[in-house]
Amino acid sequence: MGAAMIAGLPLSNRVRDYPESEFRHPLPHEAELTAGVRIEPGRSYGFFTDTTVCIGCKACEVACKEWNNLPADNLGLTGDSYDNTGHLSANTWRHVAFIEQMADRPTEMRPFQSNWLMMSDVCKHCHNPPCMEACPTGALFKTEFDTVVVQQDICNGCGYCVPACPFGVVDLNPLDGKAHKCTLCYDRLKGGLEPACAKSCPTDSIQFGEVADLQQRAAKRLEHLHAVGVPSAYLYGAPDGPGATGGLKYLNAFFLLTDRPEVYNLPEAPTRPSDRVAPSLLSGLAAVAGLAVAAVALFSRRD
């Protein structure tokens, strides 16, 4: 794979082989052309969502719904800025958050991002996924692309993955009684295609690629932003950084943010729920064992 910089983007030299603008058939390894990455099983893929270039167009939401055949939900208006999607749900796997900071007078607005923050939220595909660790049926699994997917033919709708997720991503659809969330376009990855949201993103706010590669790209972007006067920029979900605390290690889908995580409805220091299994089980058993010993003493007393 020849990864060269073409028009400022790290695209494959293969783009030169396809001068047409319309194709009758899917192209082999299409992601090489659209995202500059060849999708191969056994490697680790994810998203880097750079919120500083998000324009809130919601193309990602639409592309996701289109490809995944997801129905419109959260019908109606929320009154929360331009965010009428509201939250990630069983039928909504990309959600663009609109943070409208109106405290400043128009003449005092910051030149950078003009008091508007936008972020396309998605399943984080955690390295140590709490939903998968909680799943008692094995329906949630790590794919050959290091992404986290619910197998619909196995899920029995116990719903335990829903409270397990530290980001409130996984949701149960009461209609079909199964848990749903972003699959990182598992079917597209298998066909060598870039996930629908990333492919549709007009500003490349959502970048798809190999996680290690994306982390490097993000670090470079961060350095650049700090250099040009955005000291508040930081990565959410980079190894052991905010968003990847408590044993989550890192998030395959991570973000570049410019304000505190809570502003984007994200927890600063999520934990790994499975860390609490042993302490709580052992304390509970100790209490019962202690009381059982007391019972032995009571019962063996002659009256």
Binding site: T137, D176, L281
Partner: peptide
């Protein structure tokens, strides 16, 4: 369960990280 007919899937695996 939200799909009760699949209750037996609970017996597919044993997962020490999942109290369920």
């Amino acid at each position: 369960l939200h799909t009760p007919k699949r209750f037996y899937n609970m017996l597919r695996i044993a997962r020490p990280t999942s109290p369920m």
